[in-house]
Design a protein around this nucleic acid. Structure first.
Lengths: 219, 219
DNA sequence: ATATTTTTTTAGGTTACTCTAAATTTATTT
DNA sequence: AAATAAATTTAGAGTAACCTAAAAAAATAT
């Protein structure tokens, strides 16, 4: 239906709309975000408008139509599920996966993405803490932060975890880490990215990056 | 380096070369196989020749150069690994996976495919019994057949299995099925594709399609 | 309120890949 | 070995997505 290029435009429009509090997205915004010249953007906007995926009036910027938004969200869903697959199953670190997911998200099969979702256990957040839309496009309208991304002395409240295996959850129990626990990052070892953290108001210990990157916190 | 389209041409040339015992592949062969008009094929052959991926002389057909062959094999490697991922991890049946793999094989990251290979346990054969090239491009030069693809009254000798989990292998032990065992398909139930088979010269019983499709035989 | 700057669009061009129709080369038949 | 048929290539054109340069509209400044 929509070409790979069209999908990328829709995705960019969506993400710019999210940032700038639902104001119309301008041609220049898109040009800058996508690194494509404004004149080319105009061409594509006409095309997307003809397909009724965006609302577009000359010189007035764009908004997604309902259909356009659904399509954009379905691409975001694919992107985030693939990112999670890459980190959780193929053991990539969460800073390596974006570009690969940019390619994988355009694989068209709907069935594939539903099976992937099931394979991953219907996850709610990607490795960056961004919510994964469900197959109806519904998702949490907030974002968490990866514990391993906090700066030193930053605090966070545990919101959810990525890895859901019993062995991992049991380990968290042992460390007294559960949803709602406040964690403060006190130090980070450059070599292996392991963290020294304080949990709650008392205990203080070190955890590996492997563990940290599976914990999502709110700030 | 090579575009998606170029990759598809190389792949087609390779597979036609395999079939027709290394005779040069003709423009018409490619045109038929790829469903692209002969005139367009000629254009692309010039382009691939300029890139030194094929040996091409007007009216004489084409052969892959060394570089071209390596590239073709690397795409086949990706294709077959993705097929195996789709059947083994996402539980697709082996007749559903070809088209999806056609898309996935063009995802460019080399690292991704190496990790996928490791995740799948460095498999040697895809769900159709075709050998999977290793990361140097080496592979077995023969093909097996999936037990579930045999026709009734056909016999096969067990060559290898796809699923390598201990629980599966233990089950095969119980059934007295091992590499070298001769299996004859006596009946197939339409409803669930389960098979009635005779194993060796004596026992006769029924196995599910789930099991059959993980067994590769030579005829 | 006019002049200037910025943004956006139009006009015309390029590249990759495809097509049809016509011309050329090779293969086959008599 | 010439005539015919089949395969292949050339020529010319179309589409998608991009570009630069120039024109037009909107926003900003004086």
């Amino acid at each position: 239906m929509a070409s790979l290029t069209e999908e990328n435009y829709l995705k960019s429009i969506h993400s710019l709309m999210e940032k700038s509090s639902s104001a119309p997205v301008t041609t220049n915004d898109l040009s800058a975000a996508m690194k494509i010249k404004a004149a080319s953007v105009t061409d594509m906007l006409k095309k997307l408008s003809a397909k009724k995926l965006i609302h577009y009036k000359k010189y007035q910027g764009v908004l997604l139509t309902h259909t356009g938004k659904l399509l954009a969200i379905s691409i975001i869903r694919k992107h985030r599920l693939w990112e999670l697959f890459l980190t959780e199953k193929l053991k990539f670190s969460w800073d390596q996966v974006h570009e690969m997911a940019e390619e994988l998200e355009h694989v068209s099969s709907q069935q594939l993405i539903e099976r992937l979702d099931a394979f991953l256990g219907h996850p709610k957040f990607d490795p960056h803490g961004d919510p994964i839309p469900d197959h109806n496009g519904k998702m949490a309208d907030y974002k968490f932060f990866n514990l391993s991304s906090l700066t030193i002395n930053e605090k966070g409240k545990v919101a959810t975890v990525i890895e859901q295996q019993p062995s991992f959850l049991k380990h968290l129990n042992k460390l007294n880490i559960k949803v709602g626990t406040t964690i403060k990052v006190l130090d980070r070892v450059d070599f292996d990215k392991s963290l020294t953290i304080s949990v709650g108001s008392s205990s203080l210990f070190s955890i590996s990056n492997e563990i940290a990157k599976n914990i999502l916190v709110s700030k």
